[in-house]
Amino acid sequence: MLTGSLLFSVMMAVLAIQTRKMRNAVIYLCAFSLSMSLVYLLYHAPDVALAEAVIGSAISTILYLVALQKYKILTFFYRSEDTEVRDEHYQESRKTPLIKLLEKFSAKQELELQIIHTLDHYPEINEKHPNAFLLEEAEGHTRIYGHPENNLIDALEDFLIKEGFPKASFTIVKVEDTVL
C-alpha cells in the first residue's frame, strides 16, 4: 500500500508537469497532496499528514487560483448538429485540425482555451456569456459566431487564413445586437 501510494503520487506529479492547461494542473496537484498525506500517515507521522492535507488541498489551491486569474480565458462553445454530447464525441472533436489551430491561436495570444459542448444557439449564449464564440459544425462546414465589437474575431480570421486553413470550409458570422 505504501508502494502503491508512492507510485500514484509520482504519476500525479508527472501529469501536473506535463499538462498544457493550468487549471488541470491544479487538480493534479490536489490529488498529489492527498496521496502524499497518506504516505506520511503510513510512515507513522500523523501530525505532518494533518498539516499536508489541510495546506495542500485547501490553502495552496486558493493561492494557485488567485495567481491564475491573471491568465485570461478564451471560451469556445462547440455545437454540432443535434447529436448527444457523449464522451466519444468529445474525444473525436479534440482531434480535428480546427481545434488544434485554435489551441495554437490561444497560445499565441496568451489566453487559455476552454471548449464547452452545448446545445444552445447563439442568442442565448451571447446573452449569458459575452465575449464567447460559438463553433457550429454541419455537413463539413464550420460556422464561427462572434460579436463584432470583440477584437479577437478579426485576429482569429487573419490567423486561420495565414495558417492555410481552407477558406471554403469555414465562415465567420458577426452577429449584431440589433439583429437579435
Binding site: 487549471r23 491544479v26 487538480i27 490536489c30 492535507a53 489541510v54 488541498s57 485547501a58 489551491t61 486558493i62 487560483l65
Partner: peptide
C-alpha cells in the same frame, strides 16, 4: 471539515 473548500473554490 476543510477538504471540500478546494473543490468548491475551483
Amino acid at each position: 471539515l476543510l477538504g471540500f473548500v478546494g473543490v468548491i473554490f475551483i
